[in-house]
Design a protein around this nucleic acid. Structure first.
Length: 568
RNA sequence: GCGUCCGUAGCUCAGUUGGAUAGAGCGCCGGGCUUCGAACCCGUAGGUCGCAGGUUCAAUUCCUGCCGGGCGCACCA
């Protein structure tokens, strides 16, 4: 079911087409869209299309708006009134009955009300987190995880066929460093003197892994050469690290359909053969014993090595092969969520895909900007090299997954954000996540009160909704009508924060309505039919709040309690 | 230097593919609970939308040039 706005846009296009047939207009522009009116006096929606086409049509915009007004009429009963305003706006006033119909649908459909088929079943592969298994997830990974996870949920609801993957970089030099770090700690645990080399992971987690390895293998590798212990240390180290990463993701309510191992992929897909395919494209040349990809043909700053002089493939070659393989698996669109520090990498991957014959828009990359951690206004120093990174797990333990997710989803990916862990931890009004959850809990409290006041077996789906006539009640339904469009737009634009702001706005509107009438037109009143209608409104709102919180991966509590000390 | 992201209220941030008087939260100040949850609501103050040009009926939004900040510029991932 389309939103009222979408229905009217459809009518508007039909009206324009009619005017073309009638010879009034030359053509219908492709981007006919309504906008919401900020001013209630202007109506519900405004069409600016007359202004847009006036120049091209060489006509007075008001005349075009007048013609449009005539052919649209009342839009099959949706409209109560239309007006021409200003230089050529066509303002549309929606009748009450269609709004009541929107609420009826919400009640009948529940959380499904949020669904749309905007994505038309497009097969999308969303890759996110993909953190190296050489250390635990830190805060910045958390932001990418939330952006990816929420986006996957949004796109699913908006009708895309989404598949989520985590790419494990379990190959390459960094894994050697990891293996050696684990081995050094392993020997340390066996009583050997410990000295950290230059290339070394200093975190405590390495010692944790070494302890497990010691439990499993005993002193078997104590005095063996590296050629003997390197492989087992690498394999166990990476596996144990991935176990920890998976556990952190689970605690963060972030999930994947598949974890793809670079090592396994490389073995399975025959990298030399892949490079041959790249060579066939004519963009490979040999220099200094290395094979180079001429990515400068596609706008890159410099050409990139794919095969080193010792015959090993570079990380880039393997990653490009992985992306190529994703597209060969039948996904039409790839979305990667990367940290901003990988921004320079986008051009070369896209270049590689184009060289392999894929569309240049096959890959979308969301570059998630840095998170600067603040505690009560003071910057927290972080450095992965120094081992002073702030682990995501510690943040979740302190602030909770709900608050942390909410904060990360709340900001646009491309702007740097400040994450105040003290604020996220507060169980108070400063903390936006409690405001959102409170809205849901309050609606549940009203339902509980109603159930104990003689409304326990009422079927709200059949309520007489025409009794909802207060302007704030219609406004709330109007707001509800936006929900699926907001989700679809956020999904298409890859912007999770739109959903959070929308949720915040709708909850504020509900609190305002509730407070305004708490001493007059109460939800639960002496009038049984009006009470049922208002309970239906509350239930419709509750469904949408719950659905939106679910999309954010945040709990929708039915009741909340403040600690005595947290009260103002 | 080149590429890229950002610059909007004291602070943290929105601003619907260019639209009518630029918004929210926090903070400040002032109000509102005998009754459905005051973890809430209402109001006041606070802005040269970084600067300067340009495009247009209309620019916070698009283009160009500056200024300021983040990130990147590996045969590391």
């Amino acid at each position: 079911m389309l939103s009222i706005k979408r229905q009217l846009e459809r009518d508007l296009v039909a009206g324009m087409q009619q005017l073309v047939i009638d010879g009034v207009l030359q053509a219908v522009p492709s981007n006919v869209a309504l906008s919401y009116c900020k001013e209630v006096a202007h109506g519900d929606f405004a069409a600016t299309v007359a202004l847009q086409v006036a120049k091209l049509e060489k006509k007075n915009p008001r005349d075009i708006a007048l013609a449009l007004q005539r052919v649209i009429g009342n839009a099959n009963g949706l409209l109560s009134k239309t007006e021409i305003a200003g230089p050529g706006y066509l303002n549309l006033f929606v009748a009450n009955a269609p709004w009541h119909g929107v609420l009826r649908n919400a009640l009948l459909q529940g959380t499904d009300f949020l669904q749309s088929d905007c994505g038309a079943g497009e097969k999308v592969l969303l890759e996110y987190v993909s953190a190296n298994p050489t250390g635990p997830l830190h805060v910045a990974h958390g932001r990418g995880a939330v952006i990816g996870d929420v986006l996957a949920r949004l796109m699913h609801t908006a009708g895309y066929d989404v598949h989520r993957e985590y790419y494990i970089n379990d190959l390459g030099n960094q894994t050697d460093v990891m293996a050696r770090s684990v081995y050094l700690r392993y020997r340390e645990l066996l009583g050997h003197a410990f000295e950290a080399p230059e290339e070394f992971y200093p975190g405590e987690y390495v010692t944790d892994i070494a302890k497990t390895v010691l439990d499993e293998y005993g002193d078997r590798y104590e005095n063996e050469p590296e050629s003997i212990w390197l492989e087992p240390m690498r394999q166990r180290g990476l596996a144990l690290m991935m176990d920890r990463i998976r556990a952190d993701l689970a605690a963060f309510n972030v999930s994947f359909d598949a974890f793809m191992s670079e090592r396994e992929l490389t073995d399975a897909m025959d990298l030399p053969k892949f490079v041959e395919a790249l060579e066939a494209s004519g963009h490979i040349y040999v220099e200094d014993g290395k094979k180079w990809f001429r990515s400068t043909d596609f706008g890159d700053d410099k050409d990139r090595v794919v095969i080193r002089d010792d015959g090993r493939a570079t990380y880039f070659a393997a990653d490009l092969a992985y992306h190529h393989q994703k597209l060969q698996r039948g996904f039409h669109r790839l979305i990667d969520v990367w940290g901003a520090d990988h921004g320079g990498y986008v051009t070369r991957v896209r270049a590689g895909l184009v060289a392999l014959g894929h569309a240049d828009n096959a890959l979308d990359v969301i570059l998630v900007q840095m998170v600067s951690l603040v505690r009560g206004g003071e910057a927290v120093r972080m450095g992965k090299r120094l081992g002073t990174a702030v682990w995501l797990r510690d943040v979740i333990d302190e602030a909770g997954a709900d608050a942390t997710r909410y904060f990360f989803a709340m900001r646009r990916a491309e702007s740097q954000m400040e994450f105040d862990i003290e604020l996220a931890t507060k169980k108070s009004i400063d903390n936006p996540v409690y405001y959102a959850q409170m809205g849901h809990a309050r609606l549940c409290a009203i339902a509980r009160r109603a159930a104990s006041s003689g409304y326990e077996n009422v079927d709200l789906k059949t309520a007489d909704l025409s009794l909802l006539t207060l302007p704030e009640e219609i406004d709330l339904i109007r707001q509800m009508d936006k929900s699926k469009d907001v989700i679809a737009e956020a999904a298409a634009a890859h912007e999770t924060h739109l959903v959070v702001h929308y949720l915040q706005e709708m909850i504020a509107q509900f609190h305002s309505y509730y407070t305004k009438y708490k001493n007059t037109e109460r939800v639960i009143s002496d009038n049984r039919e009006t009470t049922i209608a208002r309970l239906a409104l509350c239930e419709g709102l509750r469904c949408i709040f719950a659905g939106l919180l679910e999309l954010l991966g945040v709990a929708a509590p039915t009741e909340m309690h403040l600690e005595e000390s947290d009260k103002p």
